[in-house]
Design a protein around this nucleic acid. Structure first.
Lengths: 116, 116
DNA sequence: CTTGACTCTCACGTCAACGTGAATGTCTAG
DNA sequence: CTAGACATTCACGTTGACGTGAGAGTCAAG
């Protein structure tokens, strides 16, 4: 499929999809015309990328993750052992971020007079 | 106290403190020399600002909140009724952000093979 | 009086994930 | 064959919360 269809099916702008390629998150084939040709699995990849981005992961980190999880069935992990450390760190970062948000929400609540 | 001490006591850079003033989050007095003179309560204010910033609130929103909570004892809320709506929205935003982060964390876990 | 730490005000630089044209080429339906 | 939708590659613009000098004034200590 071409970039427009992938864009519609994922809700991600063509510009963003080209940006993902520039960052190494996607590597679509090219037609003789230069048009990008995407695969079905790229739909899944793009969705996964979106979630990870919203989690605050940078494109460089995601670029390391994506190829390790290229088989959606096996979904496994031990494939890229050297990533486990980094992923654990990211997980900790996310947990910390959640805690921070909860703390900020508590502050808002106290400002509004809602008891903790 | 001057900007350096406030910086040390809050862990916030002088540049950031000047930025906060520019955004209306702080309004320190000035010495004849032009030096900023901060009060004790500014330490608390800065810390609160930090938490709210980390929660994703913009400086303009915080600028509206800070003066309404200037009395840390009264901590009350109804003082600025017109803010309640906005704050409720922000609260919802924070809650949504927490949910997103939790979802992303679950995805990371599934990638690592950890069961949900 | 001078040194050094501290402060001041511009004002441009940074980073991330794109948005937004501009100029041009490709494809497909009538 | 031609119009229109869709694609390409630059390349600069955006947003927020600051970082980073530059050039100059201030202040306490020796």
């Amino acid at each position: 499929m071409r970039i427009g269809e992938l864009s519609r099916r994922t809700g991600v702008s063509p510009r963003a999809l080209r940006y993902y390629e520039e960052q190494g998150l996607l590597t679509p084939a090219r037609r003789p015309s230069g048009y990008r040709e995407y695969e079905e699995r790229d739909v899944t990849t793009v969705r996964r990328v979106q979630v990870l981005l919203s989690a605050g992961l940078g494109t460089s980190v995601i670029a390391e993750i994506v190829p390790c999880a290229d088989d959606p069935d096996v979904v496994l992990a031990g494939r890229c052992p050297e990533l486990l450390d980094g992923l654990a760190q990211e997980r900790a970062r996310i947990t910390a971020a959640i805690d921070d948000l909860a703390a900020a929400r508590d502050i808002l609540d106290s400002l509004v007079g809602r008891p903790l």
